[in-house]
Design a protein around this nucleic acid. Structure first.
Lengths: 213, 213
DNA sequence: TAGATTGTTAATCGATTAACAATC
DNA sequence: TAGATTGTTAATCGATTAACAATC
């Protein structure tokens, strides 16, 4: 309830705070002022203080913020201490790379299954996991708690997979497919990652460089 | 100059318009109203009209927009007809997967070189390209026009690579490393893609589900 | 012409920044 | 205590939405 009013703009900045604070913590920096943190992160001190105050008064007047303490607070707020169970749908080059690239346990997740429809891929292994036939997805979901699905499948298969997943109670999706998931169910949470959108934006900015700020 | 005042919010929505229009075009839809397009894209019709009007009056009162024409306009605005030359730094699993996953020519780019420091990887091929020693990056840049660098390297190497690249005239970066690029040079364009930030945001939203809108 | 739908201005809403009193 | 820096309110800025006259 109390977190009801946190805007997406603030939420999306939290991981960035977390990253910078983790780095400062590694460098054994003990305390930091909103001013200094803002400088490092290239934002305003006002924004830092406003953002942090959405969640509570973590600082101390005249002193600043304890780096390690603030880091842990944000860690808790983000929920990184969880171990949400995720499955990967689509074990192609990209899906496999994402599975290997991301340090799931550090980010609140655990990868517990990989699926593909391609007979060629089924049986191969990704890390400690063996790629399963996507036909087995439903029974797998019944046998395990599956919180999240990572979607690295072709766009024409997404709607179908989504429906199956939702029916099995999977309600959060990390979506890399070229399909925009906008669920009608309000208990669903989606992160759409459109890499090509990002590249197109870069293209725009190169093309129109000098004209922008 | 005229594009000086286009806000980042609008720019970041352009690729999404482009995707939806491309799909409609494939489905042979000839014309569309801002209302219908808004409905499909889950935004307001006002926003659609405002956004498009930043670049010119592409519609016709009483009729709507020609899908194929509007698509081409956005394509032109994004600069997708260019063929910016890009190099990949860091040919690990992830870099390789990105190189294979992205259809560069369709997005205004062409991948012309891949580099790594790992002797194991040098000499292997990615598609039609052979992975080169990163030591040869500078001479490669002098021999070819390199517009963009795709960074899939460990964060501790980023600052160093950036300096070399900038000195060679490479001024745009598609950054996947866990390092936030914020250049002091105003002729530099960067797209930072932080996949783990996206996953942390998902974690937050799962953890606080029901409390958000 | 009448109906539809744009382009555009005005109103609203939300996010960011500035300022400063509270307080460590 | 004096200096520093937060937490928080108020002011500003920008983005989104609503409304409607223009026009096809």
């Amino acid at each position: 309830m109390s977190k009801n009013d946190i805007s997406m703009s603030v939420i999306r900045r939290l991981p960035r705070y977390y990253r910078f604070l983790s780095e400062l913590d590694e460098q054994k920096v003990e305390r930091i002022s909103s001013n200094r943190l803002a400088q490092i992160m290239n934002v305003t001190a006002s924004q830092v203080r406003q953002d942090l105050n959405c969640f509570g008064g973590f600082g101390q007047q005249g002193y600043g913020y304890s780096v390690s303490q603030l880091r842990l607070e944000i860690r808790r707020i983000l929920g990184l201490n969880h171990r949400y169970q995720a499955v990967l749908l689509g074990a192609g080059n990209f899906g496999t790379a994402v599975a290997g690239y991301i340090n799931f346990p550090k980010l609140g997740f655990e990868l517990i299954g990989c699926f593909d429809t391609d007979k060629e891929k089924i049986g191969r292994s990704i890390g400690k996991l063996v790629i399963m036939d996507e036909a087995e997805l439903d029974s797998f979901c019944r046998a395990h708690r599956v919180d999240t699905a990572i979607l690295c499948i072709p766009k024409q298969n997404v709607e179908n997979s989504l429906e199956r997943l939702y029916r099995q109670g999977v309600k959060s999706y990390w979506n890399f497919s070229h399909f925009d998931i906008t669920s009608k169910h309000k208990d669903v949470v989606v992160e759409n990652v459109h890499l090509s959108d990002s590249l197109m934006t870069l293209c725009y900015r190169i093309t129109n460089a000098g004209e922008q700020q």
